[in-house]
């Protein structure tokens, strides 16, 4: 069973729909026992970092998430919450990845919205994905490049499009909205 963490993180139906299209059922839950026994856990997220962290703390999920050992995938805000710190609402985050999250300087349109290409792909999440394949991004904050970076993107500046540490994977873009390329990435995660 795939568990999607329920922490009031905006609309998660698109993630559930994408999993269903790939033939996987999922549950939306914040129940600790359910999360611990799930085969895979997904931390989705559309929203604001500091209030999202407040919810994770309120539901007592911070330590539980950090201690999970099954394949874990953060998406968009979910990825940013897995970093050390976010400028959005001056938020201390989960600290799984060694990277901070900052606001884009307003040199071009913010948010970074639309299809952009990936580069420097590493690891099983991107098996079968080519550098220059495009995925769909919507975000105003970006995660620094770090030793955990497994994919890069360039908009205004180079940033982490994906991060990985041990069983923790995360993507800044929306695989559930990234057509066939996104489906392949989700399939790769589900096959871990």
């Amino acid at each position: 069973m795939i568990a999607i963490i329920d922490y009031n993180a905006g609309n998660i139906s698109s993630v559930q729909n994408a999993l269903k299209r790939l033939g996987y059922e999922s549950i939306l839950t914040r129940d600790k026992a359910e999360l611990l026994k799930a085969d895979k856990v997904i931390l989705p997220g559309v929203g604001e970092a500091s209030s999202a962290m407040t919810y994770l703390r309120e539901y007592d999920l911070v330590d539980l998430i950090k201690d999970l050992r099954q394949p874990f995938l953060g998406i968009c805000l979910g990825m940013q919450l897995m970093c050390k710190y976010s400028e959005e609402g001056d938020a201390d985050c989960l600290g799984i990845f060694d990277a901070d999250v900052k606001l884009f300087p307003p040199k071009e349109n913010v948010p970074h919205m639309g299809w952009n290409d990936l580069s420097d792909l590493k690891g099983p999440l991107f098996e079968g994905i080519q550098a220059n394949d495009d995925v769909y991004f919507v975000h105003s904050y970006w995660a620094e490049l770090s030793s955990d970076t497994i994919a890069q993107c360039d908009y205004i500046l180079p940033f982490s499009a994906a991060l990985q540490k041990d069983n923790f994977y995360a993507v800044q873009f929306h695989p559930e909205k990234s057509a066939d390329v996104g489906e392949k990435i989700l399939k790769n995660f589900l096959a871990l």
Binding site: N17, R21, H174, K177, S178, D180
Partner: peptide, 8 residues
Amino acid sequence: IAGEINIP
């Protein structure tokens, strides 16, 4: 539509 299509 949301169930069927995989772009925004």
